[in-house]
Amino acid sequence: MADRHGRRPGRSGIRRVGAALSAVLACAALGACSGVQNGAVSADSGQEYPSGPVELIVGASAGGSTDLLARKVAEVLEGPLGATVTVLNKPGANGAVAAGELMNSAPDGQQFMLTSGSLMTITPHFVSPDEALSVDDVQLVTGVGREDYVLVANSAGGFASIADIVAAGRTINYGTSGVGTGGQLSQRLLFDRLGIQSADVPFEGGAPAVTALLGSQVDVASVQVLEAMPHIQSGAFVPIATFGEQRSPFLPDTPTATEQGHDVVVDQSRFVWVPKGTPEATVAKLAEALRTTFADPGYQDFIAQSYITADETDAATTAANLQADRERYGAAIKAAGITP
């Protein structure tokens, strides 16, 4: 394993069509064997960081919003970090499987993880303790961004505001992206406060929930802005409320739930962490490289187009925010008497 000359042949060479085919097989082998390679890499930890290719772990399958963000980060990060950055998908239990494995691996920064805040702030209130992550279990590196949830209705349904939903005077079926997600929590808290008859219909992720709403199988759904935006633009969906503290910069005309008189604040944050015990210099180097990444215009274009608001807080602030969110959600869940 190359420790000094850790840089692999640059990606630019791979972009050629002619070389692509051989690269395909090499990549396939690399992707498949990478789990094995890391054992070897981590053996010489404490040396110069990064020693060889690093892995950005995503606790979800490829194609999801965390995964896409991670891929963009990995692409840009290669320059400032001076190493190949590979995205490794380890789906399972909202990311708890991958997080558990990383927590017990060598603290050398060769593997780090991009995680959604809900795993630390919302999920713990709904699942057994070993499926959740605590701020104290990890070494935070940096915050990355925040995404808003937006409550949308099918435009055929006639709802345009929260008041319209209350005035309907019937049971409201709301679609969610699953148990323990921000989409579910935001709606449960809202409908609990409204005090009207409602039924929670969980789907396996945001896309099926959007599909169901497009077909008017449910009345409303709270999903991430990216998932709803194409349909808001085409006129199929009406945005009713966002759940951020402030209005979403991408939906400036949609009032927040708080503005409409219902104090429900739920959003999704994303952050990067390494195992506890990682040398301070390593964490600092990684944080610095990530800061350079966040300043890249290509990266900034990508997050704007994905409706992510930059929230690149340092490790201490990120930890404090996560802890505060967790307590806030916990209090709201308790006050509403919600059990899954």
Binding site: R11, S12, I14, V24, C27, A28, G31, A62, E75, V87
Partner: peptide, 16 residues
């Protein structure tokens, strides 16, 4: 090694 995994692995090649 299904198409989903392969396409995920090949995504970086498509950037350029």
């Amino acid at each position: 090694l299904g198409p989903a995994a392969t396409i995920a692995i090949l995504l970086p090649i498509t950037y350029g």
